[in-house]
């Protein structure tokens, strides 16, 4: 009963933190666009948070450049358990167009464990909503 309540609360109130690890902005804007009146992610209780301490889900876009990698890891470590990482966009999934670049580590999963991958270059807001919903459905 108690567990059920907690699970319910978790699926209903995912607070997200957005982290750009060297993305081209496209995914970032689409993430923001998903929060805007046209798509309005707050319907599902999603709120964009400013600090990793408050967040449950880390939306990570970009192929992870070398300079940002330690930072990404630190941000992840600052998040309280339970937490999940969503790789947003082709770059974050695998490096995308920048695969093979020296300064790029090809995907978020090289640094931190990823729970869901949302492909697309850039992702559509609908894809983001779908991805987050699937992640919560699994939780």
């Amino acid at each position: 009963m108690f567990k059920k309540l907690i699970k319910w609360a978790r699926t209903k109130s995912p607070w997200v933190l957005h982290f750009n690890s060297g993305a081209c902005n496209a995914c970032d804007i689409e993430i923001l666009a998903a929060l805007m009146p046209h798509y309005d992610l707050e319907r599902f209780g999603v709120q964009l948070k400013a600090t990793p301490r408050h967040a449950d889900v880390l939306l990570c876009s970009g192929p992870v450049t070398k300079q940002i990698a330690p930072r990404l890891k630190r941000i992840y470590e600052q998040m309280p358990e339970p937490k999940a990482v969503v790789a947003v966009g082709a770059c974050a999934c695998s490096g995308g167009a920048f695969r093979g670049c020296y300064n790029v580590l090809e995907g978020v999963d090289q640094i931190i464990p990823v729970a869901a991958y949302i492909p697309g270059c850039p992702i559509k807001p609908e894809a983001l909503i779908d991805g987050v919903a699937k992640l919560l459905g699994k939780a």
Partner: peptide, 28 residues
């Protein structure tokens, strides 16, 4: 922090592929 690899990458691509990469310099 956003240093990826485009100018050098372009030397390794033909012009049409460059177009693809350059499109992804910036999403805006």
């Amino acid at each position: 922090y956003n240093h990826r690899g485009i100018e050098k990458l372009c030397e390794d691509r033909n012009y049409y592929q460059c177009l693809f990469i350059l499109e992804r310099i910036c999403g805006i």
